[in-house]
């Protein structure tokens, strides 16, 4: 599966005494809005139909998300 570019991961400590099979890392998302301090004017836009589907007019503010279940997490 394609890696979500917004996804970050940190390693999970695993003790030899942990009861469950280890999950080696934990993921979290840093959405694109965190890097846009103040939205500049004149950014490229989706077509109206694409904008409706994506929930935003601007591709650079679109944040994808994939179910953890689908990724087996």
């Amino acid at each position: 599966m394609k890696q979500n570019p917004e996804e970050r991961a940190y390693p999970l400590f695993h003790s030899p005494f942990d009861p469950c099979p280890p999950k080696h890392y934990k993921t979290y998302v840093v959405p694109v809005n965190q890097y846009v301090v103040f939205q500049p004017a004149g950014l490229p836009q989706f077509s109206p139909a694409e904008a409706l589907k994506h929930g935003t007019l601007w591709p650079s503010l679109y944040s994808p998300y994939t179910s953890r279940k689908f990724k087996g997490e």
Binding site: H14, S15, D18, P19, C20, P21, K23, K69, G72, E73
Partner: peptide
């Protein structure tokens, strides 16, 4: 935490 940290969503 020990009981939940390695669990999947399912």
């Amino acid at each position: 935490f020990k009981l939940t940290k390695d669990a999947s969503v399912e």
